[in-house]
């Protein structure tokens, strides 16, 4: 089922943070929500999550850093159980095992606290936790920026592979069009609180129609290397 929201807008102290925006997301869609720092992309991400949850849609959110998702005083097992409870789901070790294996979570010492796991594994755990309820949509906010590149690329590959067999749609929030261009087929481009352009990734890379999209496209990677 296609997800739709309309009239999302956010104002703070009379200042427009997000101008009225309507969106729709098809099942299995892979969308990049891109823009410069302060363009309103995370605000739109949060507004979208709230609006869909208000409609009763299961939406998962993965924040930028696992520090934002995991309590350092609680064990990994506790976090997992809390996520299951929040979704009104019973404890199911087989489901956990399947998600761990899909996301390459090599070890499962769940009695440890987050700091007993590497950062890359913590982030994979957070993504696995987000997928427990087979969400209609997973919103990932700069999911790789706290990871080093080898771990980041592996994590994105594993998530890509996992989502290929699911109906779950993905919105990847990022300032990095280079990353988005490798991972999504459509882009929403934000600038100063407005959704200024919406098109396929290829169209935006080759024929951007707004200044914001052109700037992102021009700065998408550092170097072009020979094949």
């Amino acid at each position: 089922m296609t997800l739709s929201v309309s009239g999302l807008n956010v104002e703070r102290k009379g200042r427009v943070i997000l101008a009225p925006t309507s969106l729709s997301i098809a099942p299995r869609a892979r969308i990049g929500l891109v823009g410069a720092s302060g363009s309103g992309k995370s605000t739109l991400g949060h507004a979208l999550i709230d609006a869909l949850r208000a409609q009763g849609v299961v939406v998962a959110h993965v924040p930028q850093s696992p520090d934002e998702a995991l309590d350092p005083l609680r064990t990994m097992a506790f976090h997992w159980r809390e996520a299951e409870k929040a979704l009104c789901m019973g404890h199911n070790p087989a489901r956990r095992k399947a998600l761990f294996s899909a996301l390459g979570i090599a070890y499962g010492n769940l009695t440890k606290r987050p700091w007993g796991w590497s950062r890359g594994m913590q982030q994979r755990f957070v993504i696995a936790m987000a997928l427990i309820g087979a969400p209609a949509l997973i919103v990932l906010d700069e999911p790789t920026s706290a990871l080093d590149p080898v771990v980041a690329a592996d994590t994105m590959d594993l998530l890509d592979n996992f989502l290929t067999g699911q109906d779950t749609a993905m919105v990847l929030v990022t300032h990095d069009l280079g990353l988005a261009s490798r991972r999504v087929e459509r882009l929403w481009v934000m600038s100063e609180g407005y959704l200024v352009e919406e098109a396929t990734t290829e169209d935006i890379l080759t024929r951007p129609t707004t200044e914001a999209a052109a700037k992102l496209a021009a700065h998408k990677s550092w170097l072009t290397v020979p094949c």
Binding site: T144, P149, V150, A152, A153, D154, M156, D157, D176, L177, G178, L179, A180, S181, R182, K220, S221, W222, L223, T224, V225, P226, C227
Partner: peptide, 16 residues
């Protein structure tokens, strides 16, 4: 090699 391939996979380096 892993580092270089990861940079390509994350879009930091682009293949011609």
């Amino acid at each position: 090699r892993k580092l270089r391939d990861a940079a390509v996979s994350l879009g930091a380096l682009e293949r011609a």
